[in-house]
């Protein structure tokens, strides 16, 4: 058995690895190189060293986008996880129609980000226009509009993960706690949540990186308006790369910085939540 695995592993691993190589490793390495180049199209680049990174950090818009993104990510991380967890708790009770509710809550996830952005733009503008207001006239509206959109989209997904986590907690743990006299809150804090840590790790990781990487919804809902105040990191990079003559290299440099940022934040978060996980 082991021998045949050794012999045939390339057959099973090969296609996936090839796809990973073409779809990720190669573009990534190209991107790293291009961030050090002056170029117009990606196949025709001239090496210039670290100049792009200097220009990237001098760009005030990039810094603003970072802080806006960070604020957005923290807000959505807390809101999505708390609400998704609460919904999961409710929907694991014995209520009629839980399956319908689970399906309904999960559905927004099946719609693409661009479409969601435009749909919500219509909804928000439809409501705001009653007060002679529009989504794009204030960064506040844009921020909360994005938060509502992302919560609506992602709560259902995280909910499914939490439901799976909740269902895997052995019933006898809660039963034993109940016999020991623990009330509902105590059981939640001391039994359920510690046992849910693997799910929480996954969900916080996903919401954190999703928040930082948010692009489609940002582009279609606010496009950074007004005055780039709601422009998040990914959109800022996109606009730098595509929107400005001679800034392709700077956009690429920002993308590299962005990568390092997201990876390090993700790793820190994993380390923090992993340490709280308990073995059953």
């Amino acid at each position: 058995m082991e021998k045949s695995i050794k012999r045939y592993f390339p057959v099973f691993l090969g296609p996936t690895f090839l796809a990973f190589l073409i779809g990720f490793i190669v573009p990534f390495l190209m991107g790293l190189y291009l961030s050090l180049c002056d170029f117009r199209t990606v196949t025709d680049a001239k090496f210039i060293g670290l100049g792009n990174f200097v220009r990237a950090f001098q760009d005030g818009g990039f810094a603003h986008a970072f802080w806006f993104t960070a604020l957005f990510t923290v807000t959505t991380l807390i809101l999505i996880n708390v609400i998704a967890f609460a919904v999961a708790l409710v929907l694991t009770r014995e209520i009629r129609g839980t399956n319908i509710f689970r399906t309904v809550f999960f559905m927004p996830n099946l719609i693409g980000g661009i479409v969601l952005g435009y749909v919500w733009q219509l909804i928000f503008n439809g409501i705001l226009s009653r007060y002679d207001l529009a989504l794009k006239i204030s960064a506040k509206y844009g921020f909360w509009g994005l938060v509502i959109l992302i919560c609506w989209q992602q709560i259902g997904y995280m909910m499914i993960i939490y439901i799976a986590g909740l269902q895997s907690i052995p019933g006898d743990l809660n039963e034993a706690a109940e016999i020991d006299g623990a009330n509902g809150w105590q059981r939640l804090w001391n039994v359920t949540i510690p046992n849910m840590m693997p799910s929480i790790t996954i969900c916080t990781f996903l919401t954190l990186t999703n928040g930082f990487k948010l692009f489609d919804q940002n582009l279609s809902l606010t496009a950074g308006e007004p005055m780039k105040q709601t422009e998040m990191l990914a959109l800022n990079i996109y606009n730098t790369f595509y929107g400005r003559v001679g800034y392709q290299g700077v956009g690429q440099a920002k993308a590299v910085v962005f990568f390092i940022l997201v990876v390090s934040l993700g790793l820190i978060q994993l380390k923090m939540t992993r340490s709280k996980e308990v073995q059953q």
Partner: peptide, 8 residues
């Protein structure tokens, strides 16, 4: 329309 609505 009202000028505030123009962005939309």
């Amino acid at each position: 329309c009202a000028p505030t609505l123009l962005s939309a």
